[in-house]
């Protein structure tokens, strides 16, 4: 039973939600991005939170319509940080978040257009020195600067986490769906645009972009006699090859193990 965190516990909570321009998977029409909209919904589900929506990016007509989709959820204003189309939005967002100093930042796990790498929250967290929670499913309570949240894990599992604020949380499609966007408030809401110097994304400039090709899907052929077998095959966990479970170890030992793994996998050199 989802319940809202009690209001008394975090009166005056400042929440920032980072929203981007989405794109419909079939028609490529601009729209509010699904996961970002869920992030807004998550913020709206907190009683008594002061919600601030932030968008960094270009601001052409199409984008305005899409951004208004968020306003239609009952938001009065979106802070639009104007950026050149080739800009790296992370520095601008870092400045904005540092200035506004929210306790919680919500955003979708990845954008629907552009790189869509899903790295923005991590880069922000790195720059701000804040923790990141991914797959936020529910905020249970916020007390004395510590949030108790549920994190969504594969196959409907949930994990309870306690995190010191300020923190960044990303939501994916496991979060509750976003409410309907209403036309009236959408066009009445305000897009408060603010110019901000943009840092060209140099890395991206060197890339060569091309349209993705549809790759044929490998068929998973399940040979089975009964519906029960087929169900089991479909619901089975992906087989993990190796790995180890560490429990009851000291933080140093844990860090050691993670460090070793990252080295092995060539993530750290």
């Amino acid at each position: 039973m989802p319940h809202n965190a009690t209001s008394s516990s975090h009166a005056g909570l400042q929440v920032a939600v980072l929203v981007s321009i989405g794109r419909h998977p079939l028609t490529a029409r601009a729209r509010r991005a699904d996961q970002d909209a869920r992030a807004v919904e998550m913020a709206l589900s907190l009683d008594d939170a002061a919600i601030r929506l932030v968008h960094a990016g270009g601001n052409d007509d199409d984008n305005e319509e899409a951004l208004r989709g968020y306003l239609g959820m009952g938001i009065d204003e979106i802070n639009v940080i104007k950026q050149a189309s080739n800009a790296d939005i992370v520095p601008a967002l870092v400045t904005s978040l540092r200035d506004a100093a929210p306790q919680l930042v919500f955003t979708g796990s990845r954008a629907e257009v552009g790189e869509g790498s899903g790295l923005v929250p991590y880069l922000l967290a790195e720059a701000l020195g804040w923790p990141v929670i991914n797959g936020l499913a529910q905020v249970e309570s916020i007390e004395h600067g510590v949030a108790t949240v549920l994190q969504a894990l594969p196959r409907g599992k949930r994990r309870r986490l306690r995190v010191r604020l300020p923190a960044i949380a990303t939501v994916d499609s496991n979060a509750p769906p976003a409410r309907q966007s209403a036309f009236g408030p959408a066009r009445r809401g305000e897009l408060a645009a603010r110019a901000c110097s943009s840092m060209p994304d140099e890395l991206q400039a060197q890339w060569h972009m091309q349209t993705a090709r549809k790759r044929p899907k490998r068929l998973k052929i399940v040979k089975s006699a009964s519906a029960r077998d087929r169900f089991k095959a479909a619901a089975a966990k992906a087989e993990g090859g190796s790995g180890q479970v560490l429990s009851d170890v000291s933080p140093e030992q844990g860090a050691e193990a993670i460090f070793k793994l990252l080295k092995e996998e060539d993530v750290l050199r």
Binding site: G74, R179, Q180, A182, F183, G184, P185
Partner: peptide
Amino acid sequence: LTLEHGNT
């Protein structure tokens, strides 16, 4: 209800 509340 639909255009102002968004409650279809």
